[in-house]
C-alpha cells in the first residue's frame, strides 16, 4: 500500500508543478500588462476553475497506465483503488491550500484594475460580509476541497468506465451522451417552454447552496457525489483485466 500510494501521489507531481507555473505566469503576465496599458484584469475564481479542469483531466488520465504498472508489480485491485482514493484526497488537499495561499498573495495586489478573488467569494458574496475571517477561510477551503474531489473522481469514473466498455459501448456513450445533452434535451426543453432547464437550474442552485446562501449544502453534495463516483469506480475496476 505504501509504495502504491507513493507512486500514485508522485504521478501528479510533474503535471501539478507545470500547472502552477502556467497559471502563475498568466497572472503575472496580466499584472504586468495593466501597469503599462490602460486595461483591467479580473480573475473571479479563475484559480479554482483552472484547478477543477486540471483535476478532471488528471482523473481522466489516472487509470490505464497505472493499472498496467500495478498488475506488473503484484498490486491487488483493492490496493490500487484504496491508494488511488487516498492520492485523490492528498492532491486535492495540497491544491486547496496552494490555491488558498496564491489567491490571498495575489489578492494583495487587488486594485480597481487588478482583481483576484476565490470561488467562495463569488458564489456566496452576501455571506462573506456576515461571517468572520476564520469561518470564511474554513468554508472556502471546504468548498474548494469538495469541488476538487468531485472533479477528479468524475474524471476517474469516466476513464474506468471507458476502459471496461467494449467498442460498441464506447461508441454508444461517446455519441449518445453529447446528442442527448446538446440536441435531444434542448429540443424537448423547447417544446416544454424551458421547464426542464429551469427545473435543472433550480436543482443545481439548491444542491450548490446558491439559493439558500449557505455553503453547507455544497459540502453534503460533494460528499455524496465523491462517494458515489468512487464507489462506482470500484464497482467497475474490481474485475478489470488487461485488455490487450
Amino acid at each position: 500500500m505504501k509504495a502504491a500510494l507513493k507512486y500514485q501521489i508522485l504521478e501528479f507531481k510533474k503535471s501539478t508543478v507545470i500547472f502552477y507555473i502556467i497559471v502563475l505566469l498568466v497572472h503575472v503576465f496580466f499584472a504586468s500588462i495593466i501597469t503599462v496599458n490602460d486595461t483591467t484584469f479580473r480573475s473571479d475564481g479563475g484559480f479554482e476553475v483552472a484547478t477543477i479542469i486540471y483535476l478532471f483531466i488528471s482523473g481522466l488520465n489516472s487509470f490505464k497506465e497505472t493499472f498496467g504498472m500495478f498488475i506488473q508489480n503484484g498490486v491487488s485491485r483493492k490496493t490500487m483503488f484504496l491508494s488511488r482514493t487516498v492520492s485523490f484526497l492528498v492532491i486535492s488537499l495540497i491544491m486547496v491550500f496552494m490555491n488558498f495561499i496564491f489567491v490571498r498573495v495575489l489578492g494583495l495586489l487587488n486594485s480597481s484594475r487588478f482583481s483576484v478573488t476565490d470561488m467562495y467569494e463569488n458564489i456566496f458574496e452576501k455571506r462573506v460580509d456576515t461571517i468572520n475571517g476564520l469561518t470564511r477561510g474554513f468554508e472556502s477551503l471546504m468548498l474548494s476541497l469538495g469541488v476538487y474531489l468531485i472533479a477528479i473522481s468524475l474524471g476517474y469514473l469516466i476513464t474506468v468506465a471507458y476502459y471496461r466498455m467494449n467498442k460498441a459501448g464506447k461508441l454508444a456513450v461517446s455519441v449518445g451522451v453529447p446528442v442527448s445533452v446538446f440536441v435531444l434535451l434542448p429540443m424537448i426543453d423547447l417544446t416544454l417552454d424551458g421547464r426542464i432547464t429551469s427545473f435543472m437550474a433550480k436543482i443545481l442552485t439548491t444542491i450548490i447552496g446558491i439559493r439558500s446562501g449557505y455553503p453547507y449544502y455544497m459540502y453534503i453534495t460533494s460528499i455524496i457525489a465523491f462517494a458515489l463516483f468512487i464507489m462506482l469506480s470500484w464497482f467497475l475496476m474490481r474485475k478489470a483485466v488487461d485488455k490487450n
Binding site: Q72, G74, K78, D242, N244
Partner: peptide, 20 residues
C-alpha cells in the same frame, strides 16, 4: 486472488509490456 501478500511472492515477466 486479490491478495497482496501472495502476489508479492511472484514476479511475472510477460511478453507484453505493462510498464509506462
Amino acid at each position: 486472488k486479490e491478495n497482496d501478500q501472495a502476489l508479492q511472492k511472484v514476479y511475472l515477466m510477460s511478453e507484453k509490456n505493462f510498464y509506462p
